[in-house]
Nucleic acid binder design. Sequence first.
DNA 1: TCGATAGTTCTATTATTATGGAAATACTGA
DNA 2: TCAGTATTTCCATAATAATAGAACTATCGA
Lengths: 115, 115
Amino acid sequence: MVMTKPKLEGITRYADMLTAMGTEPRLRIMRLLLSAHPDGMVVGEVGAELGISPSTLSHHLEKLKHEDLVKVRRDGTYLWYSANTQALQDLVGFLYAECCTRNNAIEPQRIVCCK
Amino acid sequence: MVMTKPKLEGITRYADMLTAMGTEPRLRIMRLLLSAHPDGMVVGEVGAELGISPSTLSHHLEKLKHEDLVKVRRDGTYLWYSANTQALQDLVGFLYAECCTRNNAIEPQRIVCCK
DNA sequence: TCGATAGTTCTATTATTATGGAAATACTGA
DNA sequence: TCAGTATTTCCATAATAATAGAACTATCGA
């Protein structure tokens, strides 16, 4: 019997995702990975671009991976990290729903179009 | 000369907003306030609803207020807290832009409609 | 097999955060 | 002015997170 990943459901999961992105280095990492989507980027390049030490960067990536916000694949000695768009979609969708759909606190078009 | 609030700009501000909401109690608080929007709720009612002690709740509200995610108004001995939709709009708009507009990593309609 | 490069994990330190009891403050109504 | 209710602030403690040097692991090419 295959044990499925005990993916936390509901509000706790979203809270964890928010914290994972709620740090300047990690938010920058996500932005960078999104800008390189869908290929993603090699760890060293991320570190060079953002000026983060290898060890620290690895911890940040680990945290993002733990919340399923990024995916990794290996290519030789390189690890390519990329944004997990499904998770981001869940998160943004959750926030959108809370603000716009469930409670009508914000009008959709204030987010979607006309910057 | 009036000193305007030194509102942090750019990515740091969004990172701070994300952390502010990135805790289960605070995310619940925001949800509750959104569900009571635009009136908001009195502190005691929030605490009763979520089972948070007055002191702890006050700290959480302070943090949300510090990131401008909530507004307060006094009515007699009561303080009414409400969601600051402008700030939420900024935040969700930022995420939406990063994911959907700037990088086309997610298709808008996956967030906006057809759940 | 060895050496080089990429990245992680180990270990430690420092800083930040969450929590809540107790004391203080704010306001109202008598 | 006082008593009572609402909420915050003070204070302390425990828990978690960020950072990074050094040691380790993984992979490749010679």
